[in-house]
């Protein structure tokens, strides 16, 4: 019986051990690789290319954080998850950061034990329809069959919009995006709704003749995307936020992946000098080298490079994702 009691005590001890005690940054460094939660199938944000390398804005954000921690954009393991599993994966510690085009909202900020870093992309929910239907506005969708993915924000978003406008619709909930595309092609649904970038992504990649499809002008919701980390690890949250800030600031300061380390460019700007580690101690708070911001920009590029590389192929106007100086919303505190 005594043996049994000891065994029980041991099991208890194992179960009760709290994973929170350890800081994420030191855990990542010890492991030698960043576990980054991404989607596997959203062109422009995160999707494998022909060689199996993950490409896109989300994937590059993961690389930027890995560069800050290790000085090497390759030290990241892409953990592909799903809309239903993504938050649990982060809560349980399977991933260190979730960069999965997650829309910020109140209930996610308060109910999940997770916290959002800064917005890196402004999106909004829209509609795509076949040109054959001759629809010019979402207001004309009375009685339409609408394809939706069950575990997405689009389902409540569309419901809200149609209710506000007094439009009846029929929901067809299909999980796999390939099946959604077939359903649209076959005319099972008249319209599909998700974030506009998602619509542009399937338009560019999934339809045989993309020109037969039209994205309606209405943007019916706000979808600001931000990386997520666990609550209660302020150091890790701060690092993720400033990796984003470094990328945006580099854009504003006029330095890019080629010129950030070029000593002849912007030598007198104190912010650029700080990013290069020549002034101040940018790495002190994290125990990282002081030039980590410069390494991040050199490896990944500034915000414009990031956008052009990943999202210009979708053919969307840059809209709110321009710098605040050009009338957009992309804004970051300065590196001071």
């Amino acid at each position: 019986m005594r043996v049994f009691a000891i065994a029980l005590a041991l099991v208890t001890a194992c179960l009760v051990t709290d994973a929170k005690a350890e800081s994420t940054l030191s855990a990542v460094r010890e492991r030698g690789v960043l576990n980054c939660g991404v989607t596997s199938a959203l062109l422009g944000f995160s999707a494998p290319d022909a060689q199996g390398v993950f490409r896109g804005m989300d994937a590059d954000m993961c690389r930027a954080i890995a560069t800050a921690v290790f000085g090497d954009p390759g030290k990241v393991r892409f953990v592909t998850t799903s809309p239903t599993q993504r938050f649990v994966a982060l809560q349980s510690g399977t991933i260190d950061v979730l960069i999965y085009t997650v829309t910020q909202n109140f209930s996610r900020d308060t109910g999940l034990g997770l916290i959002f870093a800064n917005t890196y992309f402004y999106d909004g929910q829209g509609f795509i329809v076949s040109k054959k239907l001759n629809v010019k506005s979402a207001k004309e969708l009375e009685g339409a069959s609408v394809c939706l993915q069950p575990a997405s924000d689009a389902a409540p978003g569309a419901t809200d919009y149609f209710r506000r406008n007094g439009i009846q619709f029929k929901a067809v909930m299909i999980e796999a995006i390939q099946e959604v595309v077939s359903a649209l092609n076959a005319g099972r649904c008249d319209v599909y709704t998700t974030d506009v970038t998602g619509l542009a992504s399937i338009k560019a990649r999934s339809f045989q003749s993309p020109d037969d499809w039209i994205i309606l002008p209405e943007i019916i919701s706000k979808s600001p995307f931000a990386p997520m980390v666990r609550q209660g690890d302020d150091q890790w949250l701060t690092l993720v936020r400033w990796v984003e800030n470094a990328i945006i600031d580099a854009d504003e300061l006029g330095v890019d992946s080629r010129t950030i380390k070029d000593a002849s460019v912007a030598t007198n700007n104190p912010e650029v000098r700080r990013m290069r580690g020549l002034e101040g101690e940018a790495g002190k708070a994290f125990g990282l080298p002081n030039d980590w911001p410069a390494q991040v920009v050199a490896a990944i590029g500034n915000y414009s490079e990031l956008y052009d590389r990943n999202l210009s192929a979708l053919g969307l106007p840059r809209g709110p994702n321009r710098s605040w100086r050009e009338g957009g919303l992309i804004f970051a505190p300065s590196f001071r």
Partner: peptide, 11 residues
Amino acid sequence: SVSNTALNQTG
């Protein structure tokens, strides 16, 4: 399917 949609909202 319904449970997954609800889960995405409540977490």
